[in-house]
Amino acid sequence: MMAEKIRVLLAKPGLDGHDRGIKVVARALRDSGMEVIYLGIRNTPEQIVETAIQEDVDVIGLSILSGSHMYHFPRILQLLKERKAEDIVVIGGGIIPQEDKEKLEKMGVKAIFGPGTSTQEIIKKIKELIGNKKN
């Protein structure tokens, strides 16, 4: 029987093109045995949610460095709700001030990683969030 895999959608919403962090994370997640669908830069919230649903991912990981996180995160959470897909875990990373981080976590973003976070920490958190039902 084939093993179940944690499937993760990684994407950059908005117009910010700084993709070093998210690409490094993509590789690290793959090397930890996950299946990573990388959408690249310049995605609308609609594209991200539609892809998450079609790919049946467990996690959506967003990276925003342009400061537009307070628009994009809530919009994606809202769209997931509209599509009855709130069970998909949303996490994110980038330059996000503490105050905004707290607000976003209250809205339902499950984890926000700042600069300097190790990829192992991210992997650990994802496994924790998805549970150990998958490897």
Binding site: R30, D31, G33, V36
Partner: peptide, 15 residues
Amino acid sequence: SSEFTGGALLGDRIR
């Protein structure tokens, strides 16, 4: 998929 880790990068070429 990677033979060693079982992970994969599904580069989303067709979206």
